[in-house]
Design a protein around this nucleic acid. Structure first.
Lengths: 345, 345
DNA sequence: TTGTACGCGTTATCAA
DNA sequence: TTGATAACGCGTACAA
């Protein structure tokens, strides 16, 4: 029990070899004779040495093996939507391939741990909207590789995006083909200052995903109204559904911008004594939350959420290897469930 | 645009001061005269220097500002339960107070990033069961401060726990007082090798939370049967609910070990054409997932999830400051909703 | 296959 | 208030 922890130099001395030899035993970068390895390992065990200090190693190698992930929301909020969760899973897998881990960071200014002082090799920005400019500035000033998921960071920053507009337009087309004319959208949050209610000015939406999906609906139903929520939550969808059902004319279809919202809408519709899809059709977006409405199947766009994370991870990996990563556009696929049908009457 | 990034030495040279002086300008640890500071800052700006390299700083200071969080599950799975998510939120808040961030780690051996090589100052183990011994060994060998949430790491490792047994016993008492006699539990996973089905041997449960909550129920209903699930998911609860309803005698109440499971059970019960609570009472545990069953209110134990995370963070903070952290026991509070009532007949 | 030499970029300590 | 010095612990050319 010494006062300070053993270093590789101590181990080398104990084993009667040079420090560099001991180093190689642990890194495996160069062949070492069996007897020498034995001695080094024995010395390490005797001294309670458990391997190179990660801090020193990362200084020396210029890599920490850590990828920062910056969220706009609190963690508790961000992870409430399975789509984020699954994406993180994919991201974790992808960076694990290069031995990297994920460090959780928030966009909040002044928040600790600040992005400036975190020992990260690269950064992933999630849901990059106006508010994320600060994080982006820091990242660029530090010269770190960066990838943006579902957001636009402008000039030369690789993105991983979904065909949000096309996807939503596809669903809208599906409804139009069924004969629907009076359609209402239930949207994700429109900006950093959240509040629920009818959206007056679609042009003022600062969140890319919300804007794009709404644009997709408007491609097909230019005059459709939209009701904004404060987050992708079942209960938000429920509240929006109730509010919409209280207005006239009552729509024949409600397009939610996420499955979670759609589930809430569905519940509000059923609670109002209406049948789905006979009286009202409901659609979602994401294709994640099968959980919660079984045995019903939501009509929705299934997005490759895990793939999104993996693509971001691959981009990071490429940039770390010195290559340039391209912007990646993933596509969602239509899934027809049993929540849509021809309008009544 | 130089080949290599500017260092603090470059900045100092440019500003005509010593490196150590430039250093304190950035750290603020020592007073510096205004003119000197100006010059250093100007030089930094001119050279595109954005502050000390975190890797070098962490080597020198012996701290990386990173707390590792070890999960037993994949991230996608772990974060599916809001209770975990909220806890992480509290943990993130607490460690942010000392400027630390959270690094996501998995228990899996051979998984990257491995706990051995991660530059962490301390570690939080979540849901520590047998499988976590390895992680615990690594942590102790490295001499890192460690806290365990909802698990027992033995001798001298501070824990953050909930009164799982007492809480579940309280709910059971509530049901007994209402007149219930035939009660069945729907449990969280019992061990690392997961499968759903009737639990034969409660003594074989290796997951602390599952064991303790079940023990709480057995304190009141010693002979009650238990059906194990593969995870805290609505659909798992749904499947368990269906399986239970297919058996005889049909229970008059089902106690789920989590709210998510309870919601699934609730749905199975309703789908079976039974009314809650007239025909069957359902209880949960956690008090988190208000989302999804509105306007109904689940009878459950509300646990202070965020507080759990914060307590763990506080323990970490204390240990980092050289103090010893005590084990913390938090208590859950009963919330009577509208899913429990007297048994029929 | 092993050892030598050096620097990665910073900051604590102490003296001036 | 500033400056000189010495680690922090390691990995990697390169030579032997």
């Amino acid at each position: 029990m010494s006062a300070r922890r053993a270093t590789i130099a101590d181990v080398a001395r104990e084993a009667g070899v040079a420090a560099s030899t001991a180093s190689v035993v642990f890194s495996g970068k160069t062949p070492v004779s069996a007897p020498t390895r034995e001695r080094v390992l024995a010395a390490a065990a005797a001294l309670g040495y458990t391997g190179p200090d990660p801090r020193a190693a990362s200084l020396r190698r210029g890599r920490s093996g850590i990828v920062g992930v910056v969220f706009r929301d609190r963690l508790g909020t961000a992870f409430l939507d399975p789509v984020t969760t699954v994406m993180m899973d994919g991201l974790a897998d992808a960076v694990a391939d290069v031995g990297a881990g994920l460090l959780l960071l928030r966009d909040d200014d002044g928040a600790e741990p600040s992005l400036n002082a975190a020992p990260v090799d690269a950064v992933v920005l999630i849901g990059c909207s106006v508010g994320m400019r600060d994080s982006l500035d820091v990242v660029r000033a530090r010269g770190l590789p960066v990838v943006v998921i579902e957001g636009d960071a402008g000039d030369g920053v690789p993105q991983v995006r979904l065909d949000n507009r096309e996807g939503q337009a596809f669903i809208a087309g599906h409804l139009r083909d069924l004969g629907h004319r009076e359609v209402v959208a239930v949207t994700l949050p429109a900006g950093p200052r959240r509040h629920a209610g009818w959206l007056r000015d679609p042009a003022a939406i600062s969140v890319d995903v919300t804007r794009d999906r709404l644009a997709g609906m408007h491609d097909v139903f230019p005059a459709a109204r939209a009701y904004a929520t404060m987050g992708s939550l079942v209960d938000e969808g429920y509240a929006a559904g109730r509010a919409i059902l209280a207005t006239h004319p009552r729509p024949t279809a409600i397009m939610a911008q996420s499955d979670l919202l759609a589930i809430g809408v569905l519940r509000a519709v059923v609670d109002a004594g209406l049948r789905v899809p006979e009286d009202l059709s409901v659609t979602g977006f994401d294709g994640i939350a099968a959980d919660g409405i079984a045995p019903r199947v939501l009509t929705t766009m299934v997005q490759p959420a895990a793939e999104k994370g993996r693509a971001a991870g691959a981009a990071i990996t490429a940039m770390l290897a010195g290559a340039q990563a391209p912007t990646i556009r993933l596509t969602s696929t239509f899934r027809r469930g049993d929540t849509t049908g021809p309008p009544a009457g």
